[in-house]
Structure formats: C-alpha cells, structure tokens
C-alpha cells in the first residue's frame, strides 16, 4: 500500500497522462491525494491544465510528417534544377 502515496515525479507523470485522458481511475485518486499536501505539484497541475486548455482553444495545426517529407523532396529537386 506504500504506493498510495506518490512522489512528485510519479505525480507529475500521472498529471501529464491525465491531460491526454490516459490516466486510470486509481491513478487519478492517487494524484488527487498527492495534490492535497504538495503545493509544487498543485502549481504544476494547474499550469498543465492551462496549457492543455490553451492548445485546444488555439486550434494549432500541424502538417503530417509524410507531407513534410514530400515538400522536402520537391524542394530538393528544385534546388538541384536551379543550380544547373
């Protein structure tokens, strides 16, 4: 039962996981318990949630890696053509 009390590293890991909805129910209980007495992790947890919120709100978008590679290849081709 010693695992009921997390250290800060473990707590942060669960906090990160919970941002992606990947923390189990028991994990969340342990995290909440930890947050009751750990001020540093409370702060981290709050900032972390804020970050997730920001990213969702801003709707940042990314290109897929495959598409980026395509671009790189076509750029390289052009570059070679230009140098000739």
């Amino acid at each position: 039962m010693s695992k009921l009390f997390l250290n800060c590293d473990e707590a942060n890991k669960i906090c990160d996981k919970s941002q992606y909805n990947e923390a189990s129910f028991f994990d969340k209980i342990k995290l909440t318990l930890h947050l009751i007495y750990c001020k540093a992790c409370r702060l981290y947890s709050r900032n972390n949630a804020k970050l997730t919120d920001c990213i969702n709100k801003s709707k940042v978008n990314c290109l897929e890696e495959s598409r980026k590679n395509e671009m790189k290849i076509s750029l390289k081709k052009e570059l070679v053509k230009n140098q000739k």
């Binding site: 920001c54 990213i55 709100k57 801003s58 709707k59 940042v60």
Partner: peptide, 8 residues
Amino acid sequence: NEELGKAI
C-alpha cells in the same frame, strides 16, 4: 486564438 496559436 490566432495570436495564441502563434505564441504556442
């Protein structure tokens, strides 16, 4: 939100 996206 666009500004935020830029900042991110």
